[in-house]
Design a binder for these strands. Sequence first.
DNA 1: TTGACAGGCTAACAACCATTAGCTATTATT
DNA 2: AATAATAGCTAATGGTTGTTAGCCTGTCAA
Lengths: 208, 208
Amino acid sequence: MEKRTTKQRILDEALDLFATHGYDGVTVAQIAHAVKIKTPSLYKHYKSKQDIFDAILEEIADRYKKRAESIKMDGLDAGKDTELFLNISKEQLEAMGTQLFLFFLHDEFTRKYRRMLTIEQFRNPTASRLYVAQYIDSPIHYQSTLFEAMMERNNMRRADARTAAMHFYSPMFLLLCLCDSSPEREEEALDFVRRHISQFTEIYITGE
Amino acid sequence: MEKRTTKQRILDEALDLFATHGYDGVTVAQIAHAVKIKTPSLYKHYKSKQDIFDAILEEIADRYKKRAESIKMDGLDAGKDTELFLNISKEQLEAMGTQLFLFFLHDEFTRKYRRMLTIEQFRNPTASRLYVAQYIDSPIHYQSTLFEAMMERNNMRRADARTAAMHFYSPMFLLLCLCDSSPEREEEALDFVRRHISQFTEIYITGE
DNA sequence: TTGACAGGCTAACAACCATTAGCTATTATT
DNA sequence: AATAATAGCTAATGGTTGTTAGCCTGTCAA
């Protein structure tokens, strides 16, 4: 029963357009054309252009909330992943990192709405909140608790965990920005990610 | 004689508007109003709205080019700064880093056009090129040559210099993005910058 | 003094935009 | 079978947008 309703297709196509042209750079006619219906038919599903935009933001917020909850259910925050990190080889860690990076880079929905939030963050307070929460605060907080646990067990060089988290995450963030802007440099970015993780573990992770 | 010509004021006000609303979110009437002239008078100075935008991009490219040239004239790339880094205390380094960060954050022109490039990078190839060059490639390249020199003189832990450069720069980049989106968190970001540099030097810089 | 030009203005326009009204066919409910 | 609701369509509208035409005034060189 959960096919691919028109209402959902409107959101998908609108997101696709907003993600490169921004809210003001897209006309309702363009959205309708992408969905293959006539412009006025859009209004059978959403009461305005702004309403479509808001629905996309809501969808993003929902997905984020659900993901955050599922993380908290998997043991106290990063508890489960701490175990993983402890008994992992340097090579496995590198593979894990690149895989995560590739997911963020390639997953179509993730990628499109990251671009949309990047564009809209300066004029839409909700977009700004979501952008900061998802791409800055949340990853750093997650890595932070992970590293704190590892430091306590002496699996990691003792230092400020939040700073270490930033040292781990921010290169990924920068390379994600690079790839969003210049997708043709993906391979180069990936190479950077690998060397980054490798060098990070060499510096921060104790024992072999 | 180089007062503040109307032609230049148009660029300034247009940049101001483009930096928060994006190209499509700004009307020529808004620009004219900000300059305190009537809309059609704009066309005595620029032949179209797009022409105004292109002139801004050109101005950005010019400033960037000049800065790059002046760096290269100061000895071979980062040669001069290498000396500085060698005979600098940890505290001085920290102060230098925060000062540089604050300049990028507070300098009005720098800040506005960074925001504009952020918004326009996905639909304008020139904006994309400038964004990547100025905020990713150029800083990393600069830090890279600096670190290479320092490693050769054993002033720094030997490692891949480009990766080290990313470790040094990317947290600044992330925190700049944070402040652009949430200016009220500047103090927190600044604290992060300090701890980052402090932890970085502890890890990478040899000797005291 | 004359004349060219720069730089402002008002008036106007065609194109485009988001949105509404109202018709119709299909589907679901009673 | 009758009815209501859904979701598409065409046509139209009022407002806005970028842009042009053409007028007027002050400046300055010839």
